[in-house]
């Protein structure tokens, strides 16, 4: 009895947080199956083993995401991201007309730390790159491009904000970085070892949620 009284006293003395009568139900940022696509400018920086310097250029980026919900604050998705530039070169002396498309196909997690639309993104997956550099003219006078592809893995991190425009739709602002390891790239008689493409982009997208 003495112990029971002591326990009751302890329970009564323990401070308890005041609970509001009507707790607001936190809004889910995205529900069920959601999708998102968007565009924006980007910057790519190419480094390779044995290269004395890195080269960088700007280009257009686009992305497509589709996913589901893990919890009230965390969603999971699959993201396709691509950066295309028309002034690519492995060295600053490379001729104009070269093109490069680099991208990732990644599993991503979006974490919404609060009730607002701010989220942080992290992801990992496969990476790809396709590089074309104009070479000799073909028999018909057309320019033949040396094209090479590379594949490997990529990481992505970013931050974004969902701006609700209705219950079903949101405009989404993104800033993200992508680091992709593409392996060796062979164009013409040139062998470029261990290419790493780092991409940065800002974009605006439409989210269906």
């Amino acid at each position: 009895m003495k112990h029971a009284l002591a326990l009751m006293t302890l329970v009564l003395l323990c401070p308890r947080p005041a609970l509001p009568q009507h707790l607001p139900t936190p809004e889910r940022h995205r529900r069920g199956l959601w999708g998102e696509f968007g565009f924006g400018p980007g910057y790519v920086r190419i480094a390779c083993s044995g290269c004395t310097d890195v080269v960088g250029t700007t280009g257009g980026t686009s992305y497509l995401r589709i996913g589901g919900v893990i919890s009230r604050n965390v969603v999971i998705g699959f993201e396709l991201f691509s950066l295309l530039d028309n002034a690519f070169g492995f060295t600053p002396q490379d001729s104009a007309g070269a093109t490069a498309e680099t991208g990732t196909a990644a599993i991503i997690i979006l974490w919404y730390p609060g009730r607002h639309g701010l989220y942080f993104k992290g992801g990992v997956g496969a990476a790809f790159g396709q590089f074309s550099i104009p070479a000799d003219s073909g028999s018909g006078g057309t320019v033949v491009a040396d094209t090479s592809t590379g594949g490997g893995m990529g990481l992505t991190f970013g931050v974004g904000w969902d701006i609700a425009i209705s219950r079903k739709f949101a405009l989404t602002a993104n800033a993200a970085s992508f680091v992709t390891a593409l392996g060796d790239v062979v164009t013409g008689n040139r062998h470029v070892d261990d290419v790493i493409a780092s991409m940065y982009n800002i974009s605006i997208g439409l989210t269906i949620r």
Partner: peptide
């Protein structure tokens, strides 16, 4: 060194 690392980026 910090400035150069941030400018040059990743390598193996």
């Amino acid at each position: 060194a910090w400035s150069r690392n941030l400018r040059m980026g990743w390598e193996w």
